[in-house]
């Protein structure tokens, strides 16, 4: 058995689930299915969550390796009152999503970028999304949404 600190709540994970990947535990044991498994190999980024504030590909992280660390998933990104993170609001305003499968991973990757760099230029955005995949081709709108959210954040919106 291990304990995972997910979205501010300590959760117990029994065997055999404790031996699975972080992504599998989040999705299949805890029911937090926002992060998706697109490839299982770290190639696509649909499974990105934050571990100790850094974006990680949850499909490659053994759950046991992050026991006790602060894990943030897309389900915990909005405020406790349900107020959307500026990135989530920007994503809706720019109409980014098509099929939607990869979007939670992209939003989490972008949230880590904005936490580190509140005013990313296009090349910083490109670098942050560099190894992420969206087959629908929403990259043009993701660029716009990230810039929109960065502006909102700098204007004082609370993440």
């Amino acid at each position: 058995m291990i304990r995972l600190l997910v979205n501010g709540v300590m959760r117990e994970v029994p065997e055999p689930w404790a031996g699975e990947s972080l992504l599998t535990v989040l999705r299949e044991w805890l029911g937090l299915v926002g992060a998706k498994e697109g490839c299982g190999a770290g190639d696509c980024g649909a499974c990105v969550v934050h571990v100790a504030g850094r974006p990680r590909r949850a499909c490659l992280v053994p759950a046991r390796a992050v026991a006790g660390e602060a894990i943030l998933t897309i389900e915990g990104l909005a405020g406790p009152d349900g107020a959307l993170h500026p990135l989530q609001a920007a994503w809706i305003a720019e109409g980014v999503a098509q099929c939607g499968f990869c979007q939670a991973g992209h939003v989490m990757q972008a949230a880590a970028l904005l936490a580190a760099n509140p005013d990313p230029d296009p090349s910083a955005i490109t670098a942050a999304l560099g190894r992420m995949l969206c087959r629908c081709g929403t990259q043009p709108r993701m660029h716009r949404a990230i810039r929109r959210a960065a502006t909102a954040l700098r204007a004082g919106e609370v993440p």
Binding site: R27, L32, V33, G34, A35, K36, E37, T73, I74, E75, L77, A78, L84, L87, Q88, W91, I92, G95, A97, G100, F101, Q103, A104, V107
Partner: peptide, 19 residues
Amino acid sequence: APLPEARAIVTGMALFTAD
């Protein structure tokens, strides 16, 4: 109009089969 599912998608609530 925005997609009706837009909010669900960005909050991790849109359910695909594997979910």
